[in-house]
Simulated scan of single mutants.
Amino acid sequence: MADPHANMTQATPQEVIISLLAGLFAPLLAIFLIVQLVLGIQEEQQPDTTSEAAQKATLSRIKPFAQLVALDANAPRVEKSGQAVYDAVCASCHTSGALGAPKFEDKGGWGPRLGQGFDTLVKHAIDGIRQMPPRGGDGDLSDVEVARAVAYMTNSAGASFEAPEGAAPAAAADTAGATEAAAPAAAATTSKPDPAKGKAVYESSCAVCHAAGVAGAPKPGDKAAWATRVSQGYATLYDHALNGIRGMPPKGGNADLSEADLADAVGYLFAESGGKL
């Protein structure tokens, strides 16, 4: 009977090595591709510090957990000026032209609207029109405050509408008490700030937004971005920093910051950006 193994050819050492390498090549290639895939996913997930989402996340992290506000139920409501309403409510859309809103001081954008007349524009602002919600989204605004804001915006674009005065607020019964309540803010704005000290406060509390321009915060030394702000004066800028404005929370989100330190920080930014103290 014939031996079945007699016709088998014996493999050479070279063939054995080639077979082993061929067998290892496929799993090594698979491992390499998996590693490249993981590295690619990790690279795509690196934090983006320039996106709007990252800026909102930064503001959310520095926002105070809570704010305590004491209100006097018997105190008369003092209506805001047109500029104050614009800064607090309207600027979020009318500064950038979001959702087709005509930009502040843009005569081309406001031109066709001015021809409709002041009363029509006020009605649109109160009732809402197209993408703009009633009263700009702030239901607490009075008709007089809305009308003042409309006059402030339209007059910046060449109109000459007269803003309504509204009812004069009643005089406070206790003048001495009101003076004492306003004393801390008055002291901070009347005493000359120290920009040298303010630099340290800026670096510890303000730089997180102003150094990178987060949420539209003007960068120190950027005179073009600060020009309109510097023209408002140091006292106004201090008030904005103390109470917050648009995307900036009160005291830049640091509730523990003293008013004297805040005044120094505002003085530093004011002086660095072309203001004269």
Rank of each mutant, 00 (worst) to 15 (best):
D194K: 00
A170T: 12
Y202S: 09
S160E: 09
E145Q: 07
A149T: 02
V150I: 15
V214M: 04
A196Q: 08
K197W: 01
P169V: 14
S231R: 10
T175S: 11
G216Y: 06
A224E: 02
A172N: 13
D222Q: 10
Y202N: 12
A182C: 12
G213H: 06
A157W: 12
E162A: 11
S191I: 03
E162S: 04
A157V: 09
G198A: 09
V150F: 11
A149M: 11
V230E: 01
A196H: 03
D222N: 13
A171V: 15
A188D: 03
A170D: 12
A188M: 13
P184A: 13
A186P: 00
A182D: 12
G158N: 05
A172D: 15
A196F: 08
T179V: 11
A168S: 14
A188R: 13
A168I: 13
S231D: 13
G158F: 12
A168H: 11
P184L: 11
A159Y: 05
S156H: 06
K199W: 07
T175Y: 04
A181N: 12
Q232R: 10
S205N: 11
C206D: 00
P218T: 02
G213Q: 02
A186Q: 15
R148M: 08
N155M: 08
P220G: 10
G198C: 07
P164M: 14
A185K: 13
A227S: 10
K219V: 12
R148I: 05
V146Q: 02
V214C: 06
A168E: 14
G233I: 11
V208K: 09
E180F: 13
A157S: 12
G213A: 07
C206S: 00
S160F: 00
V150A: 09
S160L: 03
K197H: 14
P164A: 14
P218D: 02
T154Q: 05
V146H: 04
R229V: 03
G158Y: 10
A183C: 07
P193M: 08
E180N: 06
A181D: 14
E180W: 09
P220V: 05
A183M: 14
A178G: 13
S191C: 04
A207G: 07
S205Q: 10
M153K: 00
A157T: 04
E203V: 06
K199Y: 08
V208L: 12
A173E: 15
T175I: 15
G213V: 05
E180D: 11
V230D: 01
A183E: 13
G216M: 06
A187R: 14
P164T: 13
G166L: 08
A211E: 04
Y202M: 11
R148H: 12
V146A: 02
Y202E: 08
K223M: 05
E180R: 02
A227V: 01
